[in-house]
């Protein structure tokens, strides 16, 4: 049996894509909004030091049309479809850290327009982090990575988070925790399964 090892990704964040921030903000460019975004970007520079990605690779087989990972059958047709044709799967947990939540909470009380903007920046950052990670893994493995498939997508129940957290040891590895209602804290975080083909 392959031993299951959790590795850490050296999480250096790529530059911010302002277009993406605007998209998450559901706003169009304007003097006021641009100024707001620039202010917020300056403010969150120091707030992203807690970013981290932990991951592990696992063999993948299929039984009765369902994916089997670490000997466990995951009863989701949509996941099986997303992983079809792959022999290995990447399990990942990623977070930009609690600093972003602190900033959002602060401005949520003080200035909600800023909170909204920081929230959009947080969304952009966590996606950028995952993209950077996947790009590097693609290079490292010399293979193609599939889409990031997260618990709650399609018919993969949200409760699969518990399994993922247990396998990846997210709290210890990157400080990512799972609440009683399956809400992740810090809030700007992602867990996902990615097929390697």
């Amino acid at each position: 049996m392959t031993q299951h090892a959790i590795e850490l990704f050296d999480a250096s964040l790529p530059p911010v894509d302002r277009g993406e921030v605007l998209r998450y903000l559901r706003a169009r460019e304007s003097g006021e909004v641009d100024a707001l975004i620039e202010d917020c970007l300056a403010e969150c520079e120091g707030a992203l030091t807690g970013a981290g990605v932990c991951y592990c690779r696992a063999e993948l087989r299929f039984e009765n049309g369902f994916a089997v990972i670490f000997g466990q059958t995951i009863e989701s047709h949509d996941l099986a479809r997303a992983l079809a044709g792959c022999r290995e799967v990447l399990l990942l947990g990623a977070t930009v850290g609690v600093g972003m939540d602190r900033l959002i909470a602060k401005y949520s009380r003080l200035c909600p327009s800023r909170a909204l903007c920081l929230d959009a920046i947080g969304d952009e950052r966590i996606e950028a982090l995952c993209d950077a990670f996947c790009a590097q893994m693609q290079q490292k493995t010399g293979s193609t990575l599939g889409m990031r498939f997260s618990p709650g997508y399609g018919d993969l129940p949200l409760s699969y988070q518990r399994e993922l957290f247990a396998i990846l040891d997210c709290p210890r590895k990157i400080g990512l925790t799972l609440g009683e209602s399956l809400l992740m804290s810090p809030s700007k975080s992602v867990t996902a399964l990615v097929g390697i083909s």
Binding site: D101, R102, A105, P171, R172, T177, G179, S181, L183, S185
Partner: peptide
């Protein structure tokens, strides 16, 4: 004794 694995309030729910 290790951590609970949950984040304390207000940023978590414990």
């Amino acid at each position: 004794i290790g951590p609970t694995g949950r984040l304390l309030s207000p940023f978590g729910d414990l």
